[in-house]
Amino acid sequence: MSHQTYYVPAQSRWPIFASIALFLMAYGAGALMNALSAKSDTALGLSLLIGGLLCMGLIMTGWFSHVIDESRRGLYSVQMDRSFRWGMSWFIFSEIMFFAAFFGALFYVRNLSVPWLGGEGEKGVANMLWQGFEASWPLMKTPDMAAYPGPSGVIDPLHLPLINTLLLLSSSVTVTLAHYRLKQNRRPQVVLWLALTIVLGSVFIVFQTMEYAEAYQTLGLTLQAGIYGATFFILTGFHGVHVTLGTLMLMVILLRVIRGHFSPDNHFGFEAVTWYWHFVDVVWLGLFLFVYLM
């Protein structure tokens, strides 16, 4: 192992400020949601939430620039780089598990609870309570149509979703190309491929929004449309949030490349973002398969 000592940063104010910001965000979000559901005054919740978000944004910018600064001053050893790598990999693993919970829910309702409610399988007696209900997937007629009016149609997987799949797949290719060019130190090309990735990601988000608009306006496919809508939106919604975050991260990286950061053999920040992007991509493949196609 190298003789360079491990860099232990001196005291830092970022963590405690970030905790306060997180608290503001959480409290604000809670107060806001309660106010919305109780149809009461949302001012407090909204201002706390926005305030918290702003603080968090500032803190994260500051904290990351601090880290970038340290990195550029060569304080980080190879070992530090490995710590970051482990950190990022396990963070992505935790994200996978987050999505796993929602995929699990999807498989459960599709294969167990909806068939049971429809009178199939070992617990089919449940159908006694929901006479006339028949199991189907996508679930167009819910057991209680008054409480949860089912959708009148679902998204055609071979239109926007297919295009979106192609978009994300090609964005994975472009981001990898950018990475190769970075290793070869061909900066203009890096910028080009990165920019293209960002464009692809943004178009994805736009299409996804269009899809949501269609779902809400013409298909009656909403959060309230029963379990199909619920699983559909929670999975695609959280995925969409991740794409948005990933795109933002790519933009930061693009800026840094333009500013001349990263060297062909030392560019962990760049790599971390590409890992994240691939992860988002793989999740989409799962979504495309299980939410749209099957």
């Binding site: 949601m33 919305l36 559901s37 919970a101 929602f102 829910a105 459960y108 309702v109 167990l112 609870s113 909806v114 049971w116 409610l117 449940a126 309570l129 929901w130 679930l139 819910t142 057991p143 209680d144 409480a147 949860y148 909403t222 959060l223 309230q224 449309a225 029963g226 379990i227 199909y228 809508g229 619920a230 699983t231 939106f233 929670i234």
Partner: peptide
């Protein structure tokens, strides 16, 4: 998160009336 959605956003993860459980 699913609880939060059921409470505030009208989903039916845990409600049989909408196909949940």
């Amino acid at each position: 998160t699913m609880m939060l959605m059921d409470i505030h956003f009208g989903t039916s993860f845990f409600d049989a009336a909408g196909g949940g459980d």
